[in-house]
């Protein structure tokens, strides 16, 4: 059993955690909602997992579950990005008006 690739994945996970902490540690409270909903849209990355479950070589059940997963992940992604953009557009409009 070869563990090196798994350890690399764990390595990426750990570094990403630290990166996440570093990136967000100082955000003005004005941006808390867009930040949260923007991050929420990114968590829709699980859409990649859903797509892979749609492999025609797999069993039928897996594909049907994968289709459901794809629908919900897409709702998360598309809805999340659009709603974040709507909010940020309001913030910007106000700035431009000054």
């Amino acid at each position: 059993m070869e563990f090196a690739p798994l350890l690399l994945l764990l390595f990426a996970f750990t570094l990403a955690a630290f990166l996440g902490f570093e990136l967000i540690s100082k955000v003005p409270s004005q941006l808390h909602t867009p930040l949260m909903s923007g991050a929420n849209a990114i968590s829709g990355i699980t859409i990649v997992g859903a797509l892979i479950a749609l492999n025609a070589g797999g069993p039928g059940v897996a594909r049907w579950i994968g289709l459901l997963a794809l629908i919900f992940a897409t709702i998360n992604v598309v809805g999340g990005y659009l709603v974040t953009d709507r909010m940020l557009a309001m913030f910007r409009k106000k700035k431009g008006g000054e």
């Binding site: 990403a16 902490f21 990355i45 990649v48």
Partner: peptide, 22 residues
């Protein structure tokens, strides 16, 4: 980690960390 996919691990973890900070 199930499908051994880097982008899922990295993006998911970024969101996990940022949510925790908030």
């Amino acid at each position: 980690f199930i499908i051994l996919n880097n982008v899922l691990v990295v993006a998911g973890c970024l969101v996990g960390a940022s949510g925790l900070i908030l």
